[in-house]
Structure formats: structure tokens, C-alpha cells
Simulated assay, not measured.
Amino acid sequence: MSAPAARLATAPVLADLIRVDSRQTARVRDAILTLAGTAFITIAGYIIIPLPFTPVPISLATFAVLLTGAALGPLRGGMSAGIYLALGLVGVPLFANGQFGWAFASFGYIIGYIAATLLVGILARRRSDRNVWTTLGLATLGSLAIYAFGVPWLAVFLGVDLATALMLGVVPFLIGDAIKIVAMSALLPTTWRIVDRTRS
């Protein structure tokens, strides 16, 4: 791999800007950031709007997941989502409406959170969070990753076909997703511009 390509693949994410002076301190920083990511996803997941025609509520968790992946990078972001999933599976009521375990219609989306944080984090490490257009792509791909797990689970759990699952688990959320994606495309590049000016 050429030097420019290597730099592109390992660009810092926002969390890397928190400087530490030793490996041990770096581990503590990473642990705190990872748990903060889990807490962020949990709190956002409790902010929901139930819809009467689908068992999947409107939630801010997806926005938190995408932002966590971009800000923390694939490893810390993926671990944040993984801890969230693991705690819920063992009985901690972290999921929307205080749910836990796996036997509910929207559980597949929570599995998708891990894939989304990994994907978004990898793209952020390739500087895709630095301008509006690439951030739009980053956030869109992250949202699609969540749906890729959520919709099949919804179809199997409800015993419906894929078209019905799409109508119940995707279509009602497209406007909200568009708002979240646009918000990310404004927030992340603006943050990086502020960081670059501060460095200068």
C-alpha cells in the first residue's frame, strides 16, 4: 500500500483528537468512550414515537448509532453497539420501551446497529465524514446496513412476506431517516472544519 493510501485508510476520527500520553491512558480513554457510546445509544433509544400501524417505533437510536460509529471509529463504535446488544440480551432493559432479550419485532435492527457502526466507522477512517456529500453517502449506507438486518428479522418474526416487511419496517421511516442523514451531513463536516481551524 502506498503512503497516501495508508494515510487515507487510517485517518483519525473525532475521538482520536482526545490526546493521551501513554498506552495505558489510551486504554482508559477508549473504554470510557466506548461506554459513553453505549450510553448515548441507550438514551437515544428511549426517545421514541410509537406508530399504530407497525410494531417498529420511530427512534433516535439510529441517529445515535451512526454518529457513534463516525465519531468513535469502527472498533470503539462497534464495541459500543455490541455492549448495548449484549446487555439487552442478558436482561438489562436498555432497548426501546424498556425491552430486553430478542423476542420482539425490532430486534433485527439492533443487530444491524453493530454492522452500521462498523461500516460508518470504517468510512470515517477514510475521511468520508469530512464533507457534505461523502457524509451523505456514509450515513445512507449506515442506515441501509441497519435495514439489511432489521427487515428480514421483522418479516420472519411477524410471518409476513418481504414486501409487507418493507412497508412496515422501512417506508414509515424514510422521511425521518432523510432528516437524520441531512443532520449528520451538516454536523460532522462542520465539526471537522472547526477542528481544522483550531489546529491552524
Score class of each variant (00 low, 15 high):
85 L>A: 04
90 V>E: 04
195 V>F: 15
142 G>S: 12
178 A>M: 10
58 I>K: 03
117 T>N: 08
62 T>I: 15
186 A>W: 11
33 L>Q: 09
87 L>N: 02
89 L>I: 12
15 A>N: 04
199 R>D: 01
33 L>R: 11
25 T>D: 12
135 T>W: 08
168 L>E: 05
110 I>E: 02
6 A>L: 15
171 V>A: 11
46 Y>G: 01
189 P>T: 01
50 P>T: 03
133 W>F: 11
116 A>S: 08
89 L>W: 14
88 G>L: 10
93 P>W: 05
191 T>D: 06
70 A>F: 14
112 G>N: 01
115 A>N: 01
179 I>A: 14
171 V>H: 09
71 A>T: 12
103 A>V: 09
88 G>R: 08
62 T>W: 13
85 L>E: 03
48 I>Q: 12
68 T>G: 01
5 A>Q: 15
2 S>K: 14
23 R>V: 10
58 I>R: 03
179 I>C: 06
109 Y>E: 00
2 S>Y: 15
15 A>R: 02
189 P>C: 00
143 S>V: 13
21 D>C: 08
119 L>W: 13
92 V>A: 11
157 F>N: 01
30 D>H: 06
96 A>Q: 06
18 I>V: 09
33 L>D: 05
193 R>Y: 14
117 T>Q: 07
175 I>R: 05
71 A>D: 04
58 I>S: 01
86 A>L: 14
43 I>P: 02
112 G>P: 00
7 R>M: 12
186 A>Q: 08
69 G>F: 10
